[in-house]
Design a binder for these strands. Structure first.
Lengths: 316, 316
DNA sequence: TGATCAATATACCATTCTGTTATGAAGCTG
DNA sequence: CAGCTTCATAACAGAATGGTATATTGATCA
């Protein structure tokens, strides 16, 4: 007993409106069109759906039940329409975001919160990974965009890269660390402190190695590695260990007052954090709006950093 | 942006089946029909719904979302079909039952439980009232059937009345009542005990009055009235009060061993409990099945009563 | 890199459905 | 009972749906 879905919708409208004419008006149709559809549905069902010959049109029990199903179809149809218009406006849908763990945890997560507050009908699905995995995920359409660090020189074909923050690493330690008081540090001063290494695969790890070797500290002491940002921060706060972190990550923790950056110059990577997207990915306006929000948030962050640094300089 | 619901369903089938041909087969259509519907839907939406030119057909984010709505429509449509076939078989739907309080509470409620156990997809909506209200409710299509007592002589036009139990009243008291031990009672024996009167409007009330007056007990003492069956039974169990109850109601309480009927003959009403239905009510097979179940349950009850009475006679 | 295979898209046609206007039939109201 | 309102039906135009036949396009493999 296959029923015509349009007929069920018309039935729902008629039952809800309390009359054939009213239901037709509700749907922007004429009364005969609806009337005939009801007759056809009734014929298909083989049972009366209305109490015929009663002026306040009243559905039979079966009619009322079928109307309920018609109502859900009608609702789903409206939802679908709203999904489409929400999609083209970028105010409805899902963004699948990938990113490197430290930046996601330190800053992107907060920015996601800001975005979702602005866009209540949007979902964000987050996943973690380093740049190569993220590129693969973009390729396979598992994510819409990735927030990753990329070398400034290597432009990958088929991908768009929007730079949002130049790479800038600092040596970080806990607030109140013995080295934190000094104004200028030599490589030799860092000797004797253990080091924390980030997740394997992270460019920070190679940065750390090259910097330490370049500093003439070939036999450095790595006691903790592989932790997430929160794990690293917690460990740092409870020890005198040193590590390499992006300055922005250290900056994002300034209100917690748990870690500080040391006044020690290290070679900077030719790398920038940015948004990586596949060039001919299926259009997803929400993803574009999300990317725009991330770019804007980082602009604000950069201004904040600038103001903060000026304040620090003046404060001295 | 009004979308075609059929197209949404086809989309859902194609996405779920993982291909146009498979989706078409799923729906019993040919591949070109489905293919064209998708093209039309895409044109209407104005955005791609599939990653074109990828062999394992993959929907775009928007396509996937619309497919979800299509799935809802498809499910509602199937539900509607099942509602129809369930309706004609009488295995799905709602019975709106009305009835007089004492019988509903004493027996019908248990029978409803039995019916709903047999018919897991059926709903029962119960309402209470005396015969005139129930007739009005039938008239106004608020209920499908009423279980009420009706005088054997008055056949109301426009209604069908199916007798299920002849009227038979007894004088009831608590188990262990001083009068319960005696073999034969005179009217005078009942003097001095207070009486419980049922809900106003109940025929039992007029029965009670006429019986008491006929017994020569004009100044009887009514200390409690208007309670539901449970209220009356609880009160009776805690007092030496007497009341008039249908024998079947007393019988239904036999396992509780809280009340008993007195061996005292009273005039019986020319009345029977039965199922009242409007003659030209909209067809509702569930209601018919329910009525049949009630009739059958009462048949079983009558046999039970007969066996029970024989046992009592033999026991003496 | 072609040749081949499998799946999708398109063309074309018959049929059904949908929607409109015009009009008849039936119930409610005063 | 007349008049009003609402629903049902008739007739027709246009759109849609669904089918067969066929072209096109990726994917696969030698």
């Amino acid at each position: 007993m296959k029923l015509n879905e349009r007929h069920l919708m018309l039935l729902a409208a008629v039952v809800d409106a309390g009359g054939v004419s009213e239901g037709a008006a509700l749907l922007g149709l004429t009364q005969p069109a609806v009337s005939r559809a009801l007759v056809m549905l009734e014929a298909r069902v083989g049972e009366p759906l209305f109490q015929r010959g009663r002026r306040p049109l009243r559905p039979t029990p079966l009619g009322a039940q079928l109307a309920a199903h018609g109502r859900t179809i009608l609702a789903a149809s409206r939802e679908a329409s709203s999904t489409v218009s929400g999609f083209v406006r970028g105010t409805k849908g899902t963004v699948r975001v990938g990113g490197v763990p430290f930046f996601i945890d330190a800053m992107i997560s907060t920015m996601i919160a800001g975005f979702l507050t602005l866009e209540p009908d949007v979902n964000v699905r987050l996943s973690y990974g380093n740049t190569p995995e993220m590129a693969k995920a973009l390729e396979g359409d598992q994510i819409d965009l990735a927030i990753v660090p990329i070398g400034l020189t290597d432009a990958t074909p088929g991908f768009d890269f929007t730079e949002i923050l130049p790479g800038r690493n600092v040596v970080a330690c806990r607030a109140g660390h013995p080295l934190a008081r000094q104004r200028r540090l030599q490589a030799a001063d860092l000797k004797g402190f253990p080091w924390v290494a980030p997740l394997p695969g992270s460019p920070l790890l190679t940065d750390l190695h090259s910097i330490l070797v370049g500093m003439g500290l070939p036999e450095f002491d790595i006691r903790f590695s592989g932790g997430s940002l929160m794990a690293v921060l917690n460990y740092m706060a409870g020890s005198d260990a040193l590590t390499i972190l992006p300055f922005s990550v250290v900056f994002s923790q300034r209100l917690e007052n748990r870690i500080a950056s040391l006044p020690f110059d290290i070679p900077q990577p030719q790398r920038a954090l940015g948004i990586l997207r596949r060039r001919n990915a299926p259009k997803n306006p929400v993803a574009e709006r999300f990317a725009a929000h991330i770019v804007q948030s980082f602009d604000e962050l950069k201004h904040l950093i600038k103001r903060h640094e000026n304040a620090v300089v003046w404060g001295r």
